[in-house]
Design a protein around this nucleic acid. Structure first.
Lengths: 248, 248
DNA sequence: AATTCCATGTCGTTG
DNA sequence: CAACGACGTGGAATT
């Protein structure tokens, strides 16, 4: 059974010594299994930045796509990690189990050194499904294109992702007076950054079309912070309250 | 041994039925252990957005701080998750194990329904250590304050985090001609967003000080993209190449 | 490979 | 609690 590659039974190991753990993890990595380890370890990282973490109990996951994750008992983000595409290696060193995940470009190395492994497990996951998310900026755009009057009476969308020297505009169109209108869409409450983004597009289009062109810039989002509202006013831009999901 | 709260041996369960798995996970959550599950499940999420994921093999982690993570065999980010502060519940329902993590404000619910649990484990992690990272924007600031000439000959820093109507400026100072200088620092190669940020600060200060004030805005980063460079030129801003770590 | 921008971003700090 | 900005942001789409 242990040699059947279609076997979905997990392999496990409790309190192994370093060499048993190394063999176990090496075999799991070799056969593209998802390996997990729990135990007392230190973690070193060097690459885009560098970090060091003293000894403590952590959970380590090695994925077959080259991802490595180190989790403590707190936080949604791993305390250390390595992105997909890395090569996982492991070896016994002294009495320790050393797990390393390495990649080039950028050159990065993650080193986890276990002084004690409490537990190891390896799984062979099969997952053909993909996630379907609702309530994104794309949904907001869809809503607007289906019902332009949600933005304002008489608004007519002419293009999406229209290019400008400053980047692509989310939605480009005209108002009922024939003036050019630029929409910047956000799925949630917006701060000053989104105002800056919209302003870049408006200024780029004003330069690009012709000197005297009057272009309206509308920030479309569920709500806006005070500072963002002040910036909008300074720049002569407008805010339109609208949510990606039907309710507001 | 199983009742010793200081016991660091993990508890494990292989191919449990739904009610055994539910008891096991409930006990782990109750005693603030870190619980992991591996098996075939569906995942539903509703909250800031909403999502649905059909049946597949996944790894689920429930942390004592209320974090929930659902990982597939690919990717650094969990396919679904719930942030710290959630309440974990679990129950047997039909032949399934249902795990839910819920929070209010914002109202969010994650529901994982296992048709089969291949494996469950619970750990009692102790981790007093905190991570030390090097190569951040704070390091870049430190470098500049220790050796202002790295920015340009004669630069004199006067304040950090100086407030403006548009937010706080990273570093505020004067050049050798006595002109006001604003620095925006970035730890890595920058795009148009950072230029917009710097421009907001410069314009706010020009308004704030007096009408005719000439203020130099310097973007300090390892490098800059072409579009960002063009935007800098348009706005009359400058770029200074400098890295958070000693080398460039 | 590089650029740009969205994200259920997450996370820390500050008011 | 809201707001603001950094992050080893990650990830997708486009060039």
């Amino acid at each position: 059974m242990a040699d059947d590659p279609t076997d979905r039974t997990p392999r496990t190991l409790t309190a192994p010594d370093a060499s048993a753990a190394a063999s176990f993890v090496a075999a799991a990595v070799e056969r593209d299994a998802l390996a997990t380890l729990f135990g007392r370890c230190t973690v070193e990282y060097d690459g885009r930045a560098a970090s060091s973490l003293a000894s403590g109990d952590r959970h380590v996951m090695l994925k077959p796509d080259g991802t490595a994750l180190v989790h403590t008992d707190e936080g949604q983000k791993p305390v250390n990690w390595q992105p997909p595409g890395c090569a996982h290696e492991c070896r016994a060193n002294g009495g320790d189990l050393v797990v390393e995940s390495v990649r080039d470009s950028p050159a990065e190395r993650l080193t986890v050194r276990f002084s004690a492994v409490a537990f190891a497990a390896a799984f062979d996951p099969t997952d053909e499904e993909s996630l379907d998310v609702v309530g994104t900026e794309a949904d907001l755009k869809r809503r607007i294109l289906e019902e332009p009057g949600l933005v304002e009476s008489g608004f007519r969308p002419l293009a999406t992702e229209r290019q400008t020297p400053a980047g692509a505009v989310d939605v480009y169109g005209e108002d009922d007076a024939g003036r050019t209108v630029v929409l910047e869409l956000k799925r949630r409450r917006v701060g000053p950054d989104a105002v800056g983004q919209l302003n870049r597009y408006v200024e780029a289009l004003e330069r690009d079309l012709h000197a005297g062109a009057t272009i309206r810039g509308l920030l479309v989002a569920p709500s806006v912070t005070e500072r963002a509202r002040a910036l909008l006013a300074e720049e002569g831009l407008e805010f339109v309250p609208l949510s990606p999901r039907e309710e507001s």
